[in-house]
Every structure is written in C-alpha cells, then in structure tokens.
Amino acid sequence: MKRRELLAMGAAALAAPAWVSAQQSAWPARSAIKLNVQYPPGGLVDTVARLMAPHLSTALGQAVVVENRAGAGGLVGTEFVSRQAADGYNLLVSHASVHVYATATRRKMPFDSVGDFTHMGMLVEAPMLLLVHADSPYKTLAEYTAAARTRPVNYGTSGVGSANHLYGELLKIEANAPMHTHVPFQGSAPAIQSLLGAQIDSVFDPVTTNVSTLRAGKLRALAVSTPSRMPAFPDIPTFAELGYPSLTGSQWLGLSAPKGLPAPIAQRLTALIPEILAKPDILAQLNELQTLPRKAPVLGNDFAQLIQSQVSTWSSVAKRANVEVI
C-alpha cells in the first residue's frame, strides 16, 4: 500500500471520533424527543411526564412529546425503550413497579432493569399507605396485626407481584400474622372501591391516588412507608416508628434511556433533573399529589445502584413470601 493511502486512512481514523462528537454535541436537532410512558393516560406516570415535558423542551430547545405505550403492567413500554437506539431521542419515565417489583417477582423478564438502561436519576417518590375504611374496627396498626394473627384480615392490592402485594406479605412476615390474606384486583382503583364498600379490610396503595379520600374522611391510614411523617398528614404514623422499619420505601419514578446513551447526552439530562424539579410550578403540582422529589437528588450511577439494591431486597422478600409471577 502506498504511503499516501496509509496517510489518508490514518487521517480518516482520527477524524471519526470528532465526527461522532460533533453529532452528539448537536443533539437534539434531528427530531422531536419521545418521552415514553408505559401506562395509559391519566395516571401518575403520565401526569409526571406531562409536567416534565414542556420544561425539558424549553431547556433542550427541541419538542418533547409524551407517548403512551401501555400493556402488561408497564412491561410493554419499558421493553420498547430498552430496544431503541441510544441516541437520546427515546427516553422513559421509569417506574419502580417495573424496574424493581416486577423484576423481583417475575420468573422471566424481557430486559435487565439495570443493564439494559442508562438511568439518569430519580424524579419523585410516592409513599405507600395501609388504608382502612373510616368505620373500620382497626384504629391502629397494632390492633390490625393482632387481629391478623388469629383470624382472616383481607388486604387488597393492584395485583399479584405488585409493590402493594409485597408490602402486604412483608408485613405478614414481620408481624407474624399468618391470617393476613391477599386479595388481588385488576388495578388499584377496583381495590379502593371495594374498600370504600367495606368488602375488604384494607388496601396497600400509594398516597398519590388517595389524597382526596383521606382528606374527605372516607378512608383512614394506619401507617405510611416514609422515613418520617408526611407534613401534609402529620397524624399518620410511619411503619418504622411502629416497629416495622423494613416497610420503609416508596414507588419512585425516574428518567431513563436505552443502555449506551452517549455520556454528554446522559450528563446533560441528568443535570436537568434537579433544575426542573426545583421549579415552583412543578413543586406545587407535585405537592398536591404528595409525590415529591428527594431533598438530596439520586442521580446517575447512584440511581442505578439504588435500583439494583432494591431489586435484591425485594427479591428476597418475594422468595420468603413465595411470591412468583410466571
């Protein structure tokens, strides 16, 4: 091969990284960015996505469009994003219900909840409540668990293998309450309706969808899964202060993308998370839902490690409780 040809090949090789870098620095320029939601319109994930989208659009100088890809309890939309190109044009509002609890309980998952994604950071958290009817004979968690040691106490959830189910089974184990009996429903809404009709004894459910019924006095919460009491509901004790610290946790939402997202894009999106969540209009709307960001943001690798840790924790709970979704 001639010396001139060798020099030309070397120059091309040196130019390639610069070309790639230029393409990345130009992001986003090609088209609208899709912010994928794995649930139908109207729920918490969809609401948070639509709060975030205009602020992301303004910050990035490109349209950000929310797309709903519902199905299989969030697996369809999450798998879709895991299989897209890692170019910054397909993002996901990731959810603990899929990335943690489904991973902990399903025999087989169509993706690796950590390895198949670039996780930029946690957006918000929704604590879990143990709810009873306003006229329930159980006034305290101690009365509730005492009853479940000797007679059936039925708790409703959004389905087998859900976060709600695992919280109920963990309480059953920790409280030594063998009669704490799971009643699965096709979603949280029918479970809550059954509780309002006094057809079941309790429901484990995130605070987000129950703010109005709590304030109206239709339901009472015996405990909440936050580390300390919620300012909006200071009379609700935490599981931890009642002797069940293992039930401290939440249903979180995060911002994720397919694995291999170029570092400059990932870093830019990660930096935007605390900026956007600190905006007064965002905080006001999230406060209404009682679904708030952490005071110390969990970002980047720390977020990925948190997901991995939670998967390990709840996989152990699922094994102890013999909960498996085939």
Rank of each mutant, 00 (worst) to 15 (best):
157 T>V: 04
58 T>N: 12
218 K>H: 12
116 D>G: 00
179 M>H: 15
67 E>M: 07
48 V>E: 01
1 M>G: 13
98 V>M: 02
134 A>V: 10
122 M>A: 08
98 V>K: 02
88 G>V: 06
210 N>M: 03
114 V>H: 02
2 K>R: 14
151 R>G: 05
217 G>V: 11
240 A>V: 08
157 T>F: 04
284 A>Q: 15
29 A>F: 06
168 G>L: 03
179 M>I: 03
149 R>M: 01
15 A>L: 14
61 G>V: 04
321 A>R: 09
136 S>V: 05
111 F>M: 00
154 N>D: 13
187 G>M: 01
94 S>V: 07
223 A>V: 01
238 T>I: 06
43 G>Y: 00
128 M>I: 14
268 R>Q: 15
147 A>Q: 04
45 V>W: 01
287 N>C: 06
257 A>F: 11
96 A>G: 12
51 L>P: 01
128 M>K: 08
113 S>N: 08
88 G>E: 04
247 L>G: 09
97 S>D: 12
258 P>L: 10
98 V>Y: 02
202 S>W: 03
46 D>T: 02
256 S>D: 15
22 A>T: 08
250 S>L: 14
146 A>E: 14
221 A>T: 08
5 E>K: 12
113 S>H: 02
257 A>N: 07
325 V>E: 15
184 P>V: 08
172 K>I: 01
55 H>E: 12
202 S>P: 04
38 Q>E: 13
172 K>N: 00
312 S>I: 06
290 Q>P: 07
294 R>L: 12
270 T>P: 09
95 H>D: 11
310 Q>I: 04
192 I>Q: 07
203 V>H: 08
194 S>M: 13
20 V>H: 10
67 E>S: 13
219 L>E: 14
208 T>H: 06
39 Y>A: 11
47 T>N: 00
257 A>T: 11
67 E>G: 06
230 M>R: 13
285 Q>E: 15
6 L>N: 07
66 V>I: 04
59 A>N: 02
124 V>N: 02
320 R>Y: 10
86 A>F: 13
131 L>I: 00
292 L>W: 11
222 L>Y: 09
150 T>C: 08
307 I>Q: 11
